[in-house]
């Protein structure tokens, strides 16, 4: 599979602050990638670099182009939603459609009207009169009416209530994702996108913690629910993380054969959030 985005040695510094430190990863075509990390991990900076919205050092290719040379060319094939509320408040919904139609060669008005038809958004409303959730619906409708091959979402559901968040991701999954189009989502609330993802990129303090396919991750990291009497035996296998939940121990193992673990307790998939915490703590210990 071709890489839609290829990142090699990507670094970015603001003064003495290192925002990104030598990142390397690839985003294959048709994938849904979650860029996961706490606030300040460098997620937005990495996405902005891909979009040509900030300078960087290292090598970066987006759909075979260098985003450092001409943001507007990249934007024909890539679209971007940053966190909610960047649509200008004075713009009318109908004018927003006319604007995108006028500047983007790959916009389909019928599609936008169809998408908006399923919402309560009125064409003659001004954006400042819409609720936060409706603004996001509008932005998503505009973006999904563009025939682009890469969609980048930076914390797209920040500050939205749960109903809108769920509807947002349902819509994306139903209408955007296919084998030719790729999706990159950054978030610090990983639970809500966990079921969508095919790939993971963990960032912490500007460092790449893990870049992996979800399938690989599931095979490599296994959580063992272990009874207290077998805890010490399980610890011999060097878990990378431990957690005590309701009196039971949950141990996360890296690349330990499942056969060895099943004798000690019940194995299950590792939730992405737990894995992230374990890997970050492991790095701290190793430092």
């Amino acid at each position: 599979m071709n890489a839609v985005v290829s990142v090699q040695g990507l670094s970015k510094q603001y003064g003495s602050h290192v925002a990104l430190n030598n990142l390397n990863f690839e985003i294959p075509q048709g994938s849904v990638v979650g860029i996961i990390g706490p606030n300040g991990a460098g997620k937005t900076t990495a996405l902005k670099a891909m979009l040509g919205l900030t300078s960087f050092s290292g090598s970066l290719q987006v759909l075979g182009r260098d985003p450092g040379k001409g943001r507007h060319r990249i934007m024909q094939d890539v679209c971007y939603i940053s966190d909610v509320g960047v649509l200008p408040r004075w713009l009318k919904v109908a004018d927003a459609l006319s604007y995108v139609e006028g500047v983007h060669p790959r916009f389909s008005r019928p599609r936008a009207l169809e998408l908006l038809g399923s919402t309560k958004i009125k064409m003659n409303s001004q954006i400042k009169d819409l609720s936060k959730g409706m603004v996001t619906q509008l932005h998503l409708a505009l973006v999904m009416s563009l025939d682009v091959s890469l969609l980048i979402l930076d914390e797209p559901t920040l500050g939205l209530d749960i109903v809108y968040r769920k509807a947002f991701y349902d819509r994306l999954l139903a209408d955007f994702v296919d084998e030719t189009r790729s999706l990159v989502i950054s978030t610090h609330q990983v639970e809500e996108i966990e079921s969508l993802l095919t790939h993971l990129v963990f960032l912490n303090d500007g460092e790449l913690v893990l870049a992996s396919r979800i399938e690989e991750m599931k095979q490599r990291f296994i959580t063992l629910q272990v009874a207290p009497d077998k805890l010490e035996q399980a610890r011999q296998l060097e878990p990378i993380g431990e957690q005590q939940l309701l009196g039971r121990w949950h141990l996360i193992f890296d690349s330990v054969p499942p056969e060895e673990l099943t004798t000690l307790g019940e194995t299950r998939l590792t939730p992405i959030a737990d894995l992230f915490v374990a890997l970050v703590q492991l790095e701290k210990v190793n430092d």
């Binding site: 979009l51 919205l53 001409g70 943001r71 507007h72 060319r73 990249i74 934007m75 024909q76 679209c79 971007y80 939603i81 940053s82 509320g85 960047v86 649509l87 200008p88 408040r89 995108v100 500047v103 983007h104 060669p105 932005h139």
Partner: peptide, 18 residues
């Protein structure tokens, strides 16, 4: 104004040159 209300991020997400 577009930098202040952050709408620049929307305008710049369109294929229009600076």
């Amino acid at each position: 104004n577009e930098r202040k209300d952050r709408s620049i991020l929307f305008w710049k997400s369109m294929p229009v040159s600076d």
